[in-house]
Amino acid sequence: MGGSPWYNFFRFRNLTRSSLVGLAFLTLFGIRLSKGSIFLDTYAFLSRPFWPGSAQSEWIIKGVQFEQEARLKLLEEDNLRLRKLLSIQESSGKDYIAAAVISRKESGWWQQILLNKGAFEGIGPGNLVTGPGGLVGIVQSVTPTTSLVRLTTAPGSRIGVWISRTKTHAILLGIGTNRPLLRFLDKNPDVKSGDFVSTSPASTLTPPNIPVGVIQSINTESLNAATGLLQLTAAPQAIDWVQVKTK
């Protein structure tokens, strides 16, 4: 019994050693409670020389053009609708903060990206993150110099979207694959493959009409409501720079 490691561990013959272990545990719990603030900030500082440059490949530029054209069309429609309601919602480029992606996990159990800007820049949990092509994800947690973003493809991601052509609303659910699931509110929604999907104006969590993707397929044989698969217009695995929409 006396030689058992458990016995040796719990008999506290050496107060200094047990105090150090306790202190280490307290420190680690502190790290856990602060969502790894020390680690993430240190990582951001150390990886600074390796942050991606501003140059993007050609297809990303095409994605930006596509996004801008789609956004322009949606904004015009939205502007017209809002003018009719005499309650114009102002938005400006000042609300966006450009940030570099310094760590990415896009295929495994965790689908997240880490940005090099955080609370010091005014970013907070719930902020929308867009990249070339459209919506990338939503900020999950922030440290002073970094932001952890949950990608739209991640399981647990839920975003309100709509198809502006028919004003059909749906919920975008991350299922882990590159193509998230669209769950419509109706059994037979008036949508078809190829319809453009953007964030819903009815959502209180996200700004309206941010491009999300294009419907790839629709399944109307689901039990409660129709579902569909969405092809995202922004590819998180290749994006080096994103924009964070602060509230």
């Binding site: 280490a24 545990f25 856990r32 993430l40 689908q111 997240q112 952890l148």
Partner: peptide, 15 residues
Amino acid sequence: IFYGLILDSIHIGNV
């Protein structure tokens, strides 16, 4: 436990 706490803190979600 040590490294589990650290790894949990740098990943999203509540798993």
